[in-house]
Amino acid sequence: MIKPKRLRSGSKIAIISPSAGLPYLFPEIYELGIKNLQDHLGLEIIEMPTARMSPDDLYNNPQIRADDINKCFEDDSIDGIITSIGGYESVRILPFLDTKTILANPKFIMGFSDATTFLTYLNQLGMVTFYGPSVMAGLAQIKSLPSEYTEHLKAILFKDSFPYTYSSFEKWTNGYKDWSNLETLGECEEFHHNETGWTFLQGSSTKQGYLWGGCIEVLEFTKSTIYWAKESFWEDKILFFETSEDKPSPMQVGYMLRNYGMQGIFSKIKGVIFGRAKDYSEEEKLKLNEIIVEIIQGEFGASDIPIIVDFDFGHTDPKLILPLGCQVELNPITKEIILLESPFY
């Protein structure tokens, strides 16, 4: 894989809005996220033209959004890129990405949710990309989240201590308090204690593979397009999926998984990781777990690969960073998930 240069204190990070124009609508929470990147992570921030652009201008100009990404990779003074927030149609920017320039100048690029489109596509072309928090969702809330979260961000982005063993956070939340209420700006909704960590639904032996995935609903946008992975790509992958605030039902998630089975993907991969499903009741989580196993193991016979659920990434917080293209180890015996290699060169 093509890896970016490691970040450090003082690295210049460009902020882009490749999807929704929420910084335009909620500037205070956006600015708090910028401040946290500066104060807590020591990063220097550069705002690209799309960062605060209006929702209508962004929607009507997918090429402008792609141009921002292209310019970030062209500019030698920029060390990395973080999205302001997600959205729902960044798939429209893919035709305008200058992939030759991007791959020739690899850089740290991180987002989640709708960023799944270009993170997975660039990874398929050979570059490590990062599934993790955005400025407004995950970084603006740093002071309200457990201190272990900031330690995790620094460990992945700045340190060179690999292999790195992921740890579950002691508490988590489904979302944030109203962004228009300045008195509670950056605060989270009710926290839930995480006493058991994540769960291995199946698996009896250790497996190693290369991370790839994102928001399972967003991945539906690229299926059967030229931006979907070729058949040979799926060998030795560990897929990770999470669900959005739209809250697809357990059965709808099952429909999406069945498509992967029909492509023969479950016979090639080494494991599956599911993020904690946002806003699901305990009953709905149990039903989702049942459907996941029923389809992957029952319908498509993949009974020997580990399946993990309730992993700390995606649309709940705190969010762990998952680097697409890097090798991880899933150990059902010790219940460990280990990032075996550095995502940076």
Rank of each mutant, 00 (worst) to 15 (best):
D160V: 02
G111C: 10
K5E: 11
D56Q: 14
S342M: 11
S77Q: 14
D279K: 13
I29Q: 04
D279P: 00
G254I: 02
S232G: 08
M136Q: 08
A137C: 09
G203F: 04
F118V: 02
N60F: 03
G203T: 01
Q38F: 07
W198K: 10
G264K: 08
I156D: 06
F118A: 02
I109P: 00
N194L: 15
L320C: 15
K230L: 00
D178T: 09
A20N: 11
E217Y: 07
L58K: 03
F96G: 07
V91K: 15
S205Y: 04
Y166G: 02
D304S: 13
W179N: 06
T206R: 13
I16E: 03
P306S: 04
P332T: 06
I45P: 15
K268Y: 01
K143V: 01
E217G: 03
E183T: 15
K35S: 02
K107C: 07
I238G: 06
T206G: 00
L94W: 06
G264R: 05
A302L: 01
S168I: 03
F162I: 01
S267P: 05
S113T: 13
K247E: 14
N36L: 05
K35V: 00
T83I: 06
E245Q: 13
Y176D: 04
F118Y: 15
S342A: 14
N36E: 06
S224R: 11
S342Q: 08
P323R: 13
P133I: 06
L324Q: 15
K287F: 03
N70S: 11
E283D: 14
K247C: 14
S9A: 12
I292P: 04
K270H: 02
M127F: 05
L125Q: 12
T206N: 03
L22K: 13
N36K: 04
T225S: 14
Y88P: 00
G209S: 06
K207M: 13
S19F: 04
A277E: 06
Q202E: 06
K3S: 08
D304M: 04
L43I: 07
S11T: 01
F313V: 11
S144G: 14
I292R: 08
E47L: 15
A302M: 02
S17K: 10
I15F: 12
P27Y: 10
V253E: 06
T222F: 05
